[in-house]
Design a protein around this nucleic acid. Structure first.
Length: 412
DNA sequence: AGTGCCGGGGC
DNA sequence: GCCCCGGCACT
């Protein structure tokens, strides 16, 4: 995951210049810094919003996620559930990416950025002098052998945490937050949880997780003989649907956090404009099984305009698709986890150098991909006859070089 | 500007 | 097929 946190200094200054193409920024600040920022630069966030960038402030100890008029219900005590703040923030970010801009003062007090972020596995891999933190995905997470995944407007499921079924900040709640609809803290009793298969062109809804997993295993993954075995992959091919038994429509609307003013879904649906769904495929695979032991995954959605007519580019740790002629990039990062018994340290997953990391982020976020369409093979990197022997010894060149053809002596 | 080499042409 | 070269892409 490409995940960027700006600190107070960035807010005081013009941090919008740092990631000009990133539209959603997770902003974590300390309480006193936020107060200062409010006082001194009251319009900073607004300025950023004008550039189609919104900020989410993750307030950890207060258990609030504040962005514009977004509030997350306060207060669970247990510190390990601070991770849920991050998750919630990710959900907010995800939803923000699809909702219209909301202009209102975003800032609220916050507490330490340092403690629980690191506890959750988010150790900044680079810290610039300006306090600009960033994370990026490990470059070796791609796995090509995943079946075609689902992807639909209501199917974007950033993460799944089977181990925490009692998550009280559910999707419906988060969605409601985005629309500034104060809702009762707990409506679980009136919610019926269904499980919807996200497989392409499927959409089967079952009432139990086991059922949907079995469905996915047998129907989509073709694991007929291993019906009881689950490697968890199925988890990422379905989503929970919380149906409000008081008002089914309410529950359904929570599935798609799109403003009614926006006629189009936030993510590609099954329409003709939909590009290949390999992005979801990559994403799904990347989440497995790493993320299952890492429920603190944060998703950051950002959009940019630079890729509109370009073909998909495989950026490890990120994926991209183009709904409605506008591209979305989804990238992610897993915190340090143990994978098949091998401890994976942060330095394993991330490039060592700050500069390199930032370069990667820059690549992911803004730079137009260099795509060779195969019309011309990549230029050879090695020395060729011309360089080796020089123009004066042209007779020593290989025939191809003499004929200005591809060098046959020093083949790349 | 220098380099690699594709595409095309003459023989 | 051999040989050459215009011109493009890339560094």
């Amino acid at each position: 995951m490409t995940f960027t946190t700006f600190q107070q200094d960035d807010l005081k200054n013009d941090f919008s210049q740092k990631l000009p193409d990133q539209q959603f920024v997770l902003l974590a600040m300390r309480e006193e810094d936020l107060k200062t920022a409010d006082t001194k630069k009251p319009n900073r966030i607004h300025e950023h919003e004008k550039e189609n960038t919104r900020s989410v402030c993750l307030l950890e100890q207060k258990r609030k996620v504040v962005s514009s008029n977004i509030d997350v219900p306060p207060a669970r005590k247990s510190s390990e559930e601070l991770d849920m703040d991050k998750v919630t923030a990710a959900m907010v970010l995800t939803s923000l990416s699809t909702s219209p801009l909301v202009h209102s003062p975003p800032v609220r007090p916050n507490e330490s950025l340092n403690g629980s972020w690191k506890e959750g596995g988010f150790v900044p891999s680079s810290t610039s002098s300006s306090g600009y933190w960033s994370w990026n995905a490990p470059s070796d997470q791609s796995n090509p052998s995943t079946p075609s995944p689902p992807l639909s407007a209501d199917s974007f499921k950033p993460f799944r945490m089977p181990s925490q079924p009692d998550d009280s900040i559910d999707e419906a709640e988060t969605s409601n937050l985005l629309f500034d609809e104060p809702i009762p803290r707990k409506r679980k009793n009136s919610m019926k949880v269904m499980f919807k298969c996200l497989w392409k062109n499927c959409g089967k809804v079952l009432s139990t997780a086991a059922g949907i997993q079995k469905h996915i295993r047998t129907i989509h993954l073709g694991r007929v003989g291993e019906s009881d075995y689950s490697d968890g992959e199925e988890d990422f091919y379905y989503t929970e649907i919380r149906l409000n038994t008081d008002s089914v429509a309410d529950g359904l609307s929570s599935l798609s956090p799109v403003s009614p003013s926006l006629g189009s879904p936030p993510f590609p649906t099954q329409d003709a404009n939909r590009p290949e769904t390999s992005c979801a495929k990559t994403e799904t695979k990347l989440m497995t099984p790493l993320s299952r032991s890492a429920p603190t995954n944060l998703y950051l959605i950002h959009t940019d305009h630079a890729y509109q007519a370009t073909p998909p580019v495989n950026i490890p740790g990120s994926t991209k698709f183009t709904p409605n002629g506008r591209s979305f990039s989804v990238s992610w990062q897993s915190p340090p986890v143990t994978f098949t018994g091998i401890p994976v340290s942060p330095t394993h997953n991330r490039p060592a150098g700050t500069g390199e990391l930032k370069q990667q982020i820059h690549t992911v976020l803004s730079s137009p991909p260099r795509v060779s369409f195969g019309l011309r093979k990549p230029r050879g990197e090695g020395k060729k006859c011309r360089k080796v022997y020089g123009m004066e010894n042209r007779d020593m060149w290989c025939t191809a070089c003499r004929w200005k053809k591809a060098c046959q002596r020093f083949v790349d």
